[in-house]
Amino acid sequence: MLKIENLTKTYGDKKAVDGLTLNIAPGEIYGFIGHNGAGKTTTLKAAAGILQFEQGEIYVCGNSIKTAPLECKKHLAYIPDNPDLYDFMTGIKYLNFFADIFGVDAEQRKNRIHELASAFEIEADLAKPISAYSHGMKQKLAIISAWLHTPDLIIMDEPFVGLDPKASHLLKEMMHGVCDRGGAIFFSTHVLEVAEKLCDKVAIIKQGKLIRSGTMDEVRGDESLEEVFLDLEAD
């Protein structure tokens, strides 16, 4: 579903990501963890086609993000760490904008918006401008817009930040739902307990380099994910 090969991205002299290779298969929830500035957001943005990179290759559903970016983007959705949405639109206009761009037909979008917005309990607020939304409401709107066109791959940067417990629970169910229909999720998080319970596979990145990856059991062995992470960080 998502194949990252030898990804390298530099900012000036600093290598933000250094030769990273990952493979995310259909049906997998893949967690991506690392300390602040380790290169998680850079990797996620590169995978979503937002950020250009110098070396390596990224494939989404078999298409190269470098040579066929639009084909890749048709299959994916991205949620950033901070939901900076169009403040000048209302919630419903924002969702319709997404639906138009991704070609979601009128009937399908109506049903999806109703289903998702009522599940996140923001349906009544959709007529309000986004500028009046709280951080959590913006996060919910970003999630709804990502799920609107039923993408095969969803890339999320710290998706649980700002969500209330009920919305977090719902998002976890939705993530499993994507995998059940053959899609995949690639997300970063600092909450190791969430990663441990939710992910099929996990990758740990440090100073732009992948230091461990695999199934949850392979990565943590007999220890907790937190212990493994702290040990690796200390090395």
């Binding site: 919630g91 904008f97 138009d100 761009i101 009128a106 009544a124 607020d125 007529a127």
Partner: peptide, 29 residues
């Protein structure tokens, strides 16, 4: 600022192409 107190009422909207959606976004901005 004052925010519309009207609750959203579900309705079917006409589907637009990507170019038209992008232009509408610019106009709204």
């Amino acid at each position: 600022a004052a925010v519309s107190g009207k609750a959203y009422r579900e309705k079917t909207v006409k589907m637009r192409g990507a170019g038209s959606a992008l232009f509408s976004k610019e106009l709204k901005r």
